[in-house]
Design a protein around this nucleic acid. Structure first.
Lengths: 338, 338
DNA sequence: CTGAAAGCGCTAACAG
DNA sequence: CTGTTAGCGCTTTCAG
């Protein structure tokens, strides 16, 4: 179809090998020849064919990132960090969305296998262990993102979600709240589970404090709205004076439900709230939301770094597990300033 | 490196051609042979190499979408619509972010050219006409998204932004507001320009009404916060009683600025607000934001449809220009219910 | 420093 | 229905 090295070579009066050298090892070509070749490239409008190059190389120059929800600013920020870091080494980022569905995740992973990507950064849905092993057997390095993998020989970069959950619950307890509710799910997501574990830990060490769980089937705004209705019922009967949500999208949804309708609740008076991720919308909510902050961009760039290191690691060598510590961004929703 | 058709063929006791047939035209192969080949594929863990397939085909099966801001839910929704439609025809979506930068846009476009993608859906930064022409000369079809292209022979799918702008301003005027401010930029973005034009049109037909422009250098939350400070000053001196922003991110930022500080403004009493895009966060803002709604997912899927039609269109044939009509989602920020 | 030639993995004729 | 073969465009020895 298009213009190929052959035509460029012909036009410049050199061989294809020389054209390739001009493109990839200009140091080994006479200056005058380079010029001639480049003139031919410009004249003909030659554009290298990545597929051919890649077929030859045996591997693509793309790094794939599979996230749980592209509509969640948390993940787009992680992606941004990853993209920048990838660019530094001439790699390009391929972004895919699993929508928290293992099937969609598998579909994407299959596709990446066929593409022979240079590596995969995966925010896993549930136990994606099998899929991960398979990729690695095929020679595609994998780094788990936003989730620890202490038990496995897979590199990972995550935030200490147990600490984050504990931090959130402790903050609520410090404000004198005692009947906490955790909103989040699906339970099989490790991130969610860990945040809940941390919260339970904090609550468990305060006599008289309780933590109930309102499960959701996803970490989205809509799920938050639905869960908010159930939280409202609990508040009404005096069984909830504080809410901790699995992420900020959920928190924003819960808040929306709590504040709407004929009898809007007072936040933080009736219920205090803490979210997770500290996305920029959390600060812009009706009542600005206290949230557990994660170093999003750093997670992305670190994941890429770990991935690139994989190349010179023996298959059975131990892997790095980078764990960031979360911070609490305190805002009005938790009633801390009062 | 990996397993290839050759090894599968050997193992199954057939030729490579037959393996290829099993994969691509199973109808023309005996059932028993198919089984044998598939067993070999499973045993060996064979995964087709896309690069080779693509090299042969001359074109990839990927469709690229370049958006202005991956952090903006508006664009991720467009992407979602596009991805689903693309999947219907066995295509895969490649998402790229220009961050409103023509340079980054060019970088991505170059990369897509090398990849020989099946087509490009582009939300153009400024006048990307040259780049678009070049892609099309190279045989890569292009569809412009979120922006009309009436003057050009390039297919496009957009929303009538002039009508949207007019609608927003008219709504504000209907509430009795007279000193409007438009927040948005950069001015070179066609979407922004059209929305402003529509607003000016509406304002121009009401005696005594005015429209001032507070320019921004991007359509982000942060830019909105910065612009909000300037809006506040205008409100203070009585030169603004209503704000219309180029998109919802800006609106949320402006609102955040207006509501913070020692003297928070009253919305809609002191200033009424209307945004654009109707992203889900608009309804969850401190004061729920009235916004001009665009059919995001439809725009994405329609763009893919137009792109696929391109293949059987003569280079100089006229192109379709799908234009959706926006709707106004009225909420508290514009004071309409009062 | 440059040219010739082999081959990456796959598909599509074309024969048989 | 199945086997053989010729490239797709590129890089990379290996000679010269």
């Amino acid at each position: 179809m298009g213009v190929s090295v052959k035509e460029v070579a012909q036009r410049a009066g050199v061989s294809v090998g020389t054209v390739s050298n001009v493109l990839n090892r200009p140091g080994s070509v006479r200056a005058e020849t380079i010029e001639r070749v480049q003139a031919a490239i410009a004249d003909l409008g030659y554009v290298p064919n990545d597929a051919a190059r890649q077929l030859r190389a045996g591997q693509s120059t793309q790094i794939a990132l599979v996230v749980l929800d592209m509509g969640n600013p948390f993940f787009t920020d992680v992606a941004r960090g990853a993209e920048e870091q990838a660019a530094l080494s001439g790699h390009t980022l391929l972004l895919a969305n699993s929508d928290e569905s293992p099937d969609r995740e598998a579909l994407h992973l299959d596709q990446f296998e066929r593409q022979r990507v240079a590596g995969v950064l995966l925010v896993p849905t549930a136990d994606a262990a099998e899929r991960v092993d398979r990729l690695r057997e095929r020679g595609i390095p994998v780094v788990l993102v936003d989730r620890g993998a202490s038990d496995r020989s897979v590199a990972s970069v995550a935030v200490d979600d147990v600490a984050g959950g504990r931090m959130a619950a402790q903050h609520l307890l410090d404000q004198g709240r005692r009947t906490l509710v955790f909103v989040g799910g699906p339970a099989m997501l490790d991130q969610v589970r860990d945040r809940l574990l941390g919260a339970q830990d904090a609550v468990g060490s305060v006599p008289g404090a309780s933590l109930e769980v309102v499960p959701t089937s996803g970490l989205t705004l809509d799920e938050g709205v639905a869960a908010g209705e159930r939280v409202r019922a609990l508040v009404d009967v005096g069984e909830c004076d504080a809410v901790f949500t699995g992420n900020d999208l959920l928190a924003i949804g819960v808040q929306q439900a709590l504040l709407s309708g004929p009898q809007p609740m007072k936040i933080p008076d009736d219920v205090a709230m803490v979210g997770y991720d500290d996305i920029s919308f959390a600060a812009a909510a009706v009542v600005p939301i206290t949230s557990v902050r994660q170093p999003r961009a750093d997670m992305g760039s670190t994941a890429v770094e770990l991935l690139l290191k994989e190349r010179d690691l023996a298959p059975d060598a131990p892997r790095e597990h980078v764990v960031f510590q979360p911070e609490l961004a305190v805002r009005r929703s938790s009633g801390a300033s009062a």
